[in-house]
Design a protein around this nucleic acid. Structure first.
Lengths: 347, 347
DNA sequence: AGTGTTTGCTAACATGAGTTAGTAATTCGC
DNA sequence: GCGAATTACTAACTCATGTTAGCAAACACT
């Protein structure tokens, strides 16, 4: 039976007390330990290949050095979520850079409340990053009001919980402005989802701001809503195509939805971008490889994860995050569906 | 300063000792605790909303009840990985059903060795699921030979480490047989990657078995290799199209690669599936929405995660996994790129 | 030389559970 | 009615660390 190597063992080998070992290995400030002793301890730890026991450490220090990442997703949603890998990578890298691990917890939206605050209360983690927050989440409100560290990925306005999100208003405005700059004046929008979704609402706002900012009219007849699916995009696009005064360009506020919209346009025998220009949103990993390659706003998925972890760690380590919310910029990726590659030649 | 509620508190409230509380809450077998006392303890725990301290518990019991999931992925790979969300969901659900949490760790392939075995040695986790194993992974061999619980997602043959994988030989055979059953006799293959990859090798084997099983000739001229990218698929497909005796069908062993192949076929002015039938592999989330919708083998991503967690838990709890490797079946998803919807009408 | 200060270290306690060995009270067997 | 067995519990130890208070020796200062 091989025994676990504890700090006692390295204390014995170095000829000092356990306390000294702890001081050396944790670089406790204020303790003047002569270089000679310090080296002796470090050498002993190295020789025995000492690995501190995480549980003992966290019990004594009260810190687990683990961040909880809670994803509220059904299996179907996970299937459609093409960004989670990047988000998680950003999270994990950012956390590890700061000396933290990440505990992943997937919670079906149908499960009852009171499930993830326990992660903190049982001291499994020091704090939580919640992806896909909802208003009707009792557990979330409880966790926040109990003062437990939590950071949201995605906005929940007027609630005071720190969040990391994408600047959807600005992003949608950029997308729309791009179409305007290509000479379009009759631009429709297909939102990603109903306006109850904050993201959806913000994207519509950005579209509108861009139009008004360019002196164009905002026409409700050119506004349609999808439901996060290609099918919804196809239906919405069909309605737009049936209008007497057909738009010359469409901003589809989700690449997934845009797949359906493209199909609808093709089915009418129309060409993209010659007959109708399309700009999408999200830059899903395949947007470059569909026909035609989609011009779209790039979602900084890795950055979202990175920032969320950073914020949470700052919160855990005592910083005040009242007004530290992060809104990440989005970048326009110009491919072919907007027609910019054609215009440029003629200009 | 509100104090944490410990088992001592509930012992006091219930008028028993801490030991008894522990016996009741953990349902320790062999201890005859009368129903009346048991209820008194449970009621006290409920009233005080007791949450046991994870670190204390794991220190005393030696179990963390956390599974480590280690993903060896660069950021670029994560971008192309469309299955991780489903895999993680399967893992997390399966683990939670068995009373375990999952710790997520992303490791860039370029980082040096010796990074994740420490997760176990520091008792952060009870065992590890490693996704994307490699032969040159010192840490993996060390972990396994040290008897630490580990399960692979993806095969590494002849090494004796328990794994969960997809039956690539069978899957590729099914895909090829489907094309044969549609009347094709001149069927090419574009693999997903070079044959050094086990998955790639196995898919080619399945293709070959199907041909020979149907009495068809296996012709090396019809075999091309891609590199996991659409670009590679396009190049490979162009070579096949340039053959004097053009194939009437292609099995592309990766949907991502197939995107490039479709583009190559379209660029030649040929029609899918009339001129060339295509069957893909993986069923990436967008395969149903590209043009034409792709017939493909469905990767049971959720199931892979589920099985991996189950195996690891069994291993942690003492079971012998020497010959318990899991090979999951794959299912053919018939859409339009294979031409089955046309054939059926004429038959 | 004696008092105060710094240096270098350690004894002892705290953290919050699980678990073993054992004890007092009750019941059983005859 | 008395020893044996059972019932219902608990004292005390264990896990592996972090941390506080304090001690002995060396040194500094007058």
């Amino acid at each position: 039976m091989k025994k676990r190597i504890t700090s006692k063992d390295i204390a014995d080998l170095a000829g000092v007390s356990r306390t000294t070992v702890s001081f050396v290995l944790n670089n406790v400030p204020g303790m003047r330990i002569p270089e000679e002793t310090r080296q002796r301890v470090l050498e002993a730890a190295r020789r025995l290949d000492y690995q501190p026991h995480a549980a003992a450490r966290s019990m004594a220090s009260g810190r687990t050095h683990v961040l909880g990442i809670v994803v509220r997703q059904s299996i179907e949603q996970a299937f459609a979520d093409l960004f989670l890998p990047q988000v998680l990578l950003g999270l994990a890298h950012s956390a590890e850079e700061r000396g933290y691990y990440t505990l992943f917890r997937a919670i079906d939206p149908t499960t009852p409340n009171g499930v993830y605050s326990n992660l903190i209360r049982q001291r499994h983690v020091d704090g939580i990053i919640l992806s896909g927050p909802r208003f009707d989440d009792q557990d979330l409100l409880y966790t926040h009001s109990a003062g437990l560290p939590i950071v949201l990925m995605g906005q929940l306005p007027n609630i005071g919980i720190p969040f990391v999100d994408v600047d959807n208003v600005g992003g949608a405005a950029k997308a729309t402005q791009h179409l305007i700059s290509l000479g379009h004046a009759h631009i429709a929008i297909v939102t990603n989802a109903p306006l109850e979704y904050t993201a959806s609402h913000d994207r519509l706002t950005g579209y509108r701001q861009a139009l008004l900012g360019a002196g164009l009219r905002y026409d409700e007849a050119l506004v349609r809503h999808a439901d996060l699916t290609p099918q919804g995009g196809q239906r919405a696009m069909n309605e737009l195509l049936a209008l007497p005064d057909r738009p010359t360009a469409v901003f589809v506020a989700s690449d997934t939805v845009a797949l359906g919209a493209l199909q609808a346009i093709r089915n009418e025998g129309l060409h993209i971008p010659q007959d109708i220009a399309v700009v999408g949103y999200d830059d899903i990993p395949l947007s470059a490889y569909i026909e035609p390659p989609l011009t779209t706003m790039r979602l900084p998925a890795y950055g979202l994860g990175w920032e969320a972890a950073e914020m949470l760690v700052r919160r855990i380590e005592g910083e005040d995050l009242s007004h530290a919310d992060v809104l990440l910029d989005m970048e326009l990726v110009v491919r072919e569906s907007c027609g910019a590659h054609l215009t440029r030649r003629t200009s």
